[in-house]
Every structure is written in C-alpha cells, then in structure tokens.
Nucleic acid binder design. Structure first.
Lengths: 330, 330
DNA sequence: CTGTTAGCGCTTTCAA
DNA sequence: TTGAAAGCGCTAACAG
C-alpha cells in the first residue's frame, strides 16, 4: 500500500499530473477539472509529498523550534501558541531540545536548517557571537524568544516593565524592606529583566529603602527549603521571581503559621492553577505565554512569506493582578 | 545555502556521482578516491540535500507524534522521553495536536503519514474502527500510548494494577467507605483502568463495603469546588483520580481545617512537585511518564528498522508511594 | 571497486 | 487551458 501521488490523482481524473500540480499551486485549471481533482483528493486523503515538493520548490512548510527543555508548563504553553498558529497556516513544527547547553543549541539550529525548515524559533539560553554568525550564515529567518540582541529578531515578554509595575505597587504601599527571591543569576536561561525593573523603580523613586536578594533555582523544593532563611531575614515583603517560587513559599509560610499579608507580604511573577487556589490570592504579574508563541510564529511566518530580513524587537505586554497578599502600610 | 551537489564533487574528482554517494553512505570506495572526495567536500563545504535524500531513500528520519493537547506536564514529560530516544537515534519529531477531537486525530495521523514520517506515536483519545482501518492502510508502524486494542500496538502504564494496589492498601487499612473522585467517564481521553482496578480489588476481597463515586474534570479548580460536596458525603477515604485532583482536594481540606488522615484519608494517582510539598505526604501511585515516552519510541524505532509488523501490548510498571495520608483503622 | 541507468514525486517550461 | 518532457539532487540496482 504505497502512498498516493499526484499521478494517482491525475489517473483518477484522466488528466495529466501537471494539471493536478497546477490545481495544488493555484494555476490555470478548468472549473470542470478543478471539481474532479477536488473530489479525488478528498476521497483519497492525498497530501503532497513534501520531500519531492521541497526538492523543486523553495518552501518546506516546516518550522523549527529549539527549546532548552520540554517538561515545563511555561514552555509547553508557548509551544501551544506556536502550534496553533502553525496549524492555521498549514505548517508543521520540528522540535529540538538543547538541555541548557549552548553548544547543543547551536547544533540544533544548524541541524534544523539542514533539514530544510523555512524558519526557526529559538528559546535561547544566551546569545553569543556564534549565534549571530550562524544566523547570518543561514538564509532563513530566525527569531529568539528569550533574549535580546540588537542584531537579531527578538520577541520577548516585557519583564522589565513587569518588574517596574510590581515595584510601583509595593512602593505605593510603603514597603521599604524587600527581599527579592530570584533564580541564580549565573543561570543564563533566565531573563534578568524582572529584577532589574524592580530595582530600578525603587532606585528612581524611593529613598530610605532596602532590597536584599536571595537566589534559588527553578524547583519548588529548593524555594521551599529556603523558607526558614527567608523568615529569619524578616523583610516586610518577599518578591518571588517565578510562579514555582511563589507557590513553594506560600505553602511553606502557611505550614508554619505565618500570616500573609499581616506577618509578611508576597508579590510574584507568573501565575498557575495551583497558585490560584491558595489563599490569600497572590498579587502577581501575569504573562501570556501562549501569546508569546503566537506572536513569534506570526512574525516568523510573515518573514518567511515576505522574505523580509530586517531585524526587529517586540515586547509583549504584561498584566498586573492584585490579590490580598500585600499589606498596605501607612 | 550549499549550492554544491554530489555531481559537483564528482566532477572535481573526475569520478561519478555514484561513488560520491557511496562515500557518503559507507559503500565501497577506493582509498585513493576516498581521499579526493574527502578533500573536495571539506573544501567546498558541501552538505547533502536533505530532501533529495529523503525522496529517494524512503526513510525520513522523522517520527510523528499525535497528542490531544500540549499544555500538560504529563504530556510534556512523555514528550521528553520520546525526544530523548529520538535524539540518540538521530531522529526528529514532528508534532500534531488533536485538541481532543477524534476526527482531527485521524487527520493528523494521515497527514503525518503523508508527510513521510517513518512511524507515529499516538496519545489517543479513543480507538475507533476508523483508527484500525487507517493504521492498516498506512504502511508505517503506529503505536498507541493511551489505549488498548487487541489489533494494534499499544504501550500503556498499567493503570489497572495501580488501581488494584491502591485498593489493596486501603483494604488492608480497613477502609470500607470510600469515595472515588475521578474524571468524568464520558471523557474518552481517560483510561478507566485505575478505577476498574480499584473497584475489582474490593469486589474480590472485601465484604460489607461501600464505594461511591463522583466525577470532575482535569482542572484543579473544579475538584477544589467540589470540596464541600465531598465533605458532606463523609467517606472514610477519598481516592483522587489524578494528581491535579489530589492537589486541589488537599488544598481545600487544609483551608477548611479538616485533618488528614484523622478526619479523612486521601489516596491518589500520580504525583507532582507541588503535591510533594503538601503535608501530610499523600499515599499515591507514581507513574513513569518519561519512561512511557521512552518505551514507545524504542519500540517504534525497533519496528521501523526491523520492519516487523506484529502487534504487541506492553504494560509499564507502576510504583506505590506510602505517605501519611491514610488512617490505619483497626 | 566503479560507472551507467533509472527513477523518487513534484514543479515548470514550452508547445499545442 | 492542457500535456509532454525535463529535471531538482540523490540512491540503488546492475553490469562491468
């Protein structure tokens, strides 16, 4: 049982495969034949062999996606956004993971390119000189979604603004002794924007304040285990760098009978289903990760079709969600 | 873009392109020619055209994966398992989502087939007659990982045994009034094995017992909102059908000052990072989802290379994890 | 070992 | 409007 080809379709309709090809690519076909071909295709479920097609034409209908890892809800939500747009445009996605290894990431980009994808979305760890050279070497659009570099296409969630907005809220509620609990900064994977934005807002607006900082990783467990250290520092508020950190800390504080926001205030970045069940509701910055995947894909598809090659930066909006986790100090 | 073809290389070496092809694919080439070809390739930076190669060779190095959705940690963990094995075997994965729509799922399988993948892994909603026909029609191996059907290749986590093991534990601790909180059964996506195993164990071993059942969905919110109903039923134990349900219920009970396991016992299926932070630790059945993806991929790759076509069933082991969430009734 | 010869399935002139 | 024919770059018999 071999695959149906345009030749089969042509035979079924008693016409030549050229006509079928024309039908498929929007060329001249008589209304009569058009109808016959349409039926034959529907009946057989024929789909054009993209290896053959690509051999002749220019486009593969394939979009490459390079990810640092897979088992993360944030990542899979982005992926969903990418996938949905691809589907609407008849594109398929080819995924590669880098396992947080820049060398592997570069390899993946190159390998995807050699496999003939029309464009690549990279959730990158870091942008190195090699990235720039590679992107310039290959002749297809590449967009980065976790980084910024002036010479490349980058689409990001506006973490910096998120940091500033959250800071503004805490500042307005007179918090002056803050603990920022973020991801270790040597982890290239993180975007430092949240923290920078937060710090800068205070720097520019507040006087007589103190922001201390502690570092953890992406796991819930590690943040949870830092609970005691955090309490001992007695800040008026803790800002949690990710939704995992927020969740872990909320659970820890609850278990140790520390009242939020009476004893300590909590602010976060990110949200999750589990988090939204916890009480009190946490004041947090929300991000539209599906929208990120969507935007990146729309952007790159647009580049693919228009063959535009100028570099752009896009920042996606962030959303403030007020909960009851912050004490209003007078 | 490598404009150079094997013909160019052949010309440079004054040999035929067949020899170059042989060189590339590990066939017989004299040492002398081998050296010349090697130099020419290095000098030109030649890379073989992926599409031409695939057109001819009939193996694409592509594995299709059909998923009901993407934004789920269970799914992305399976995907990670698939991806890791693919990587080791130089395969790439092409992903399609069905959005819980059987028609779409069938289309995806067909479309992947037409795109030339060498095999397909399907996380299916349901196996219909159409699935069987489609699988028989297409000439590549297809393995299902969320269902069982005698005429198809199926690799599953042994939910039935998981159900029985959990039941055994509750039975041994003398629980006789149980509430089973599962996913609505009309949702084809679920595997009923957990519940069936649980019920059957009691049926076979217990006398004078009562198992009631309540249905919810995959969201945390819905299970959480059922908290009050559950309490009102006053069972001695609640069995939660998924880790989300377990998490939501634990949070609800905690917030309403109901003590576990003194007031009510909890048993679960599945585990998660957030869940493992909650107290008391929940007694639950653990599943190796990465292993599921891994097994399915190894199995299908094996079929691809050996062209074997017999149908098999594989059940993956489950793991019992005892916590402190179950009261030992004497 | 090597070259010749056929295509793989599709697009694209070019005549008709 | 349509069909014939010529490849795209590569692999795989087959004969030498």
């Amino acid at each position: 049982m071999s695959k149906i080809t345009i030749q089969d379709i042509a035979n079924m309709c008693n016409i030549s495969k050229s006509s079928v090809s024309r039908y498929l690519n929007g060329g001249y076909v008589s209304e009569q034949n058009r109808q016959k071909i349409k039926e034959a295709i529907e009946q057989t479920g024929f789909e054009t062999n993209f290896f053959a097609k690509r051999l002749k034409s220019k486009k593969s209908g394939l979009l490459g996606v390079v990810l640092p890892k897979m088992d993360s809800l944030v990542i899979s939500t982005i992926l969903m956004g990418i996938n949905n747009v691809c589907e609407d445009n008849n594109y398929s996605i080819l995924i590669k993971t880098s396992n947080f290894d820049t060398k592997k990431e570069l390899q993946n980009i190159n390998s995807l390119y050699n496999q003939g994808v029309d464009g690549i979305i990279v959730y990158s760890l870091d942008i190195t000189q090699e990235h720039i050279e590679l992107v310039n070497k290959i002749s297809i659009p590449v967009v980065f979604i976790n980084n910024n570099h002036k010479d490349l296409d980058c689409i990001n969630i506006d973490d910096y603004t998120a940091g500033r907005l959250l800071a503004e809220y805490f500042y307005n509620n007179n918090h002056k002794d803050i603990l920022f609990l973020g991801i270790v900064e040597k982890n290239k994977y993180i975007r430092p924007g949240r923290k920078i934005g937060f710090y800068e807002y205070y720097q520019e607006n507040a006087t007589d304040y103190k922001i201390r900082s502690l570092e953890t990783d992406f796991s819930l467990r590690n943040a949870y285990d830092m609970g005691n250290d955090i309490i001992n520092l007695k800040p008026s508020a803790v800002i949690c760098g990710t939704e995992h950190i927020t969740t872990a800390l909320m659970i820890y504080l609850k278990q140790h009978n520390i009242n939020i926001p009476e004893d300590i205030s909590i602010g976060g970045f990110g949200d999750s289903d589990a988090l939204s069940l916890l009480k009190p509701e946490v004041t947090t910055m929300k991000f539209d990760y599906e929208g990120l995947g969507k935007s990146a894909t729309e952007y790159i598809l647009n580049k693919i079709f228009n063959r535009s090659m100028d570099k752009n930066k896009i920042s996606l909006p962030v959303f403030f969600k007020e909960g009851q986790s912050v004490k209003k100090i007078s």
